[in-house]
Design a protein around this nucleic acid. Sequence first.
DNA 1: AAAAACACTTAGTACTCGGTAA
DNA 2: TTACCGAGTACTAAGTGTTTTT
Length: 544
Amino acid sequence: SLFCYVLRAKMLYYNWRLLLPLVMWEEQKYEDGIKWKFLEHKGPYFPPEYQPFPDDVKFYYNGKPVKLSLPAEEVSLFFAQMLDHEYTTKEVFRNNFFRDWRKEMTLEERQLIMDLNKCDFGELHAMHKKKVEARKNLSKEEKLVEANQKIVEEYGYCVLDHHRERRGDHPKQGMLKKRIQPEDVIINCSKDSRIPEPPAGHHWKEVRHDNTVTWLASWTENVQGSCKYVMLNANSKLKGEKDWEKYEVARRLKTCVDAIRAQYQEDLQSKQMGTRQRAVALYFIDKLALRAGNEKEEGETADTVGCCSLRVEHITLQDTLDGQKCVVEFGKDCIRYYNKVPVNKRVLKNLKLFMENKQEGDDLFDRLNTQMLNKHLSSLMPGLTAKVFRTYNASITLQQQLRELTTDNVVEKLLSYNRANRAVAILCNHQRAPPKTFEQSMANLQTKIDSRKEQLDLAKKELKQAKKEAKGSSDNNLLMSVQATDREENEQIALSTSKLNYLDPRISVAWCKNMEVPLDKIYNKTLRDKFAWAIDMTEHDFVF
DNA sequence: AAAAACACTTAGTACTCGGTAA
DNA sequence: TTACCGAGTACTAAGTGTTTTT
């Protein structure tokens, strides 16, 4: 996908999450489907009460101490907590915050506090730092951790199918997220269940009984106005089945992908402009694994684009570049995704045509949107949408890359696996900011390798006894230099996203079986949980 | 037919925690 | 015993795609 490089600032959270009293379900299967039944419910969780500032901690306006009213005081702390962060220096962030903060003030306060620059949060900031420090020391006694675990234990599970499951320059930076009240929350549970009690003195927005959706509770968030849900954990049966279905759809694409490719090659010459645009878009989605690119409201979110929302300024066309013919250059300054791709001659010709008489800001594909594209795709194969191509290409790439490798050392096998994984991550443009400590940690590893080498040389010169050590040391050395290679290649690439979302786990499970590599070298605990369905069912001869 | 709402997946950041070096 | 590091995890914004409303 293409990410316009707009600074994404984390929003300021003014949101004690309402830890929902979790509904416990039991399922009874009937011939025509599923009936939900309430099993058990433990009492509601009350968000912690607000604690006013201690007397010796003051907020100053224009050099004078001001005692703030409760809501304003609560909010002020959020800004104070972030003072170390760059965000609080950003114009947009400050403006958004100040506007929302003033809404929480009393009339008097609003009349007094007119300028954020005259506010001094210094003492509040210090108080916060002290608190953080104190909690750090406390954590050894694990009081907090225990308390947290208790909450999770009590409210973090539901029972489905008899299994106990865990539930699962931005324009708006600095805006306040309102605290969620029971009055905002819709509870979804079955009719004959005991409906969870709202906290005393409160009531739910609604209690409904809809077994066609998977969420247990929902509410509307105030910043974007979007819905938020409480859903099941990724390792639940419900999500597992969905995941399995996803990969099965992608596998089915294998049988008709050749025909689809032939078709869009032909469509490149269609007399219909819309058809041609669709063909080029499909070419990008297939070849470059771009995301579909739905439209979204301007000014509401960061300016990121996908295939269908590409604009004229996002690409440059070159007849020849660096010795290659027909090159499309994506990105340049404003986009996070940068890529130079040699393309089919017809594609280039079409792109030229699409860009005629257009200027910066105009849509590249003006006769196409994601709905039309997906409608077309689903007519070619049931269940086919643009995103299926990403899953398909990612998984098939992993499978091909794994086949090519030939080595029998476990350490090197892992490097090969990670390389295959990396090929996919690059395809899907799963980037990450290079870790801040990257250079340092590379240097550390190199130092280790060097010192091992020295030891090795030394050992070689010494007695027979030393030879044994040298052997062990030599293995170790191999391990570390492979690690170093691996890590170096990994600087800007995030492997986790593709592993979690795009690569059919059965490919990896089968590979481990064949290569006699323990599965936990590839999948951590979370992934093993999530892919339990695949681990159970996969034979060594699985082919995607 | 377009827009909005809704439900669910994907993506990346920030934090946590356990192991290890100092 | 402490400090540091990195892998793993939690969290939630930002996507996709379907359904409902206008």
